[in-house]
Amino acid sequence: MLIHHFGSRDGLLTAVVRAVEDRQRALLADRDDDGSPADAAAAFWRHLRSPELAPQERLFFEVYGQTLQGRKWAEPMLEGVVSDWLGPLTGLLAAGGIDNPGPHARLALAVTRGLLLDLLATGETAEVDAAMELFARLLLGPVENGGSAPTST
């Protein structure tokens, strides 16, 4: 059944990564618009860097690396790996009053992925959270609702 549906074990891994990415984008797109975009970004970061998601994040980077090495089985992951995120991120940034949010969305995606990779490599949660907080403040301003930008939970 595995070969019938996914072609191989590796095809299954690619499908899993794409499904996780789909869920993450849906979560970002379905944010509660009662808070500010900075609040939404902080909540999304806290979700992404939760220890429960670490195995999925490691799998994402493993398969992503395989695509960059030209592994044919991983090529389906490249479809939309950046472009599918730009819509939800652009919407969040536009809601935050960012003019021309497209380049900001690409930057936010790159910074988020880089900090997730940093977190997985070092386990330095407080330091990585501080870097994300700085980035969020530079991009969106301070978090409202009486809190700070992303911090450890």
Rank of each mutant, 00 (worst) to 15 (best):
L86G: 06
R58Q: 13
E79G: 07
S50F: 00
F60Q: 01
P55L: 03
P103L: 02
A126E: 05
L107R: 04
A40E: 05
S83H: 11
S50C: 10
T112N: 00
P37E: 10
E133Y: 06
R113A: 08
A126R: 04
P37R: 12
L120N: 08
E127V: 06
A41E: 10
S36P: 10
Y64K: 07
L92N: 08
A136R: 07
Q66K: 15
W45I: 05
L109W: 07
W73T: 05
R71D: 15
A26P: 00
A43S: 14
L120W: 02
E127I: 05
L116T: 08
E75N: 08
G80I: 05
A108G: 02
A110G: 07
N100T: 06
D30G: 15
R31M: 09
T125D: 15
L120P: 10
R23A: 08
L115M: 13
P51K: 05
L116A: 05
K72Q: 04
R58C: 04
T90S: 13
R137L: 10
E57V: 13
N100Y: 03
A26L: 08
L53Q: 08
R137T: 14
H104P: 00
M77S: 00
H104L: 01
D84H: 11
D129N: 13
R71E: 15
E75A: 13
R46Y: 10
A136P: 02
A126P: 02
A105Q: 00
A131Q: 14
Q66G: 10
L86W: 05
V82W: 11
E127R: 13
D84F: 09
E79K: 11
A40K: 01
L109V: 04
R31I: 11
A95D: 14
N100L: 01
H47C: 04
T67D: 00
S36G: 07
F61C: 01
K72V: 14
D118N: 15
F61N: 06
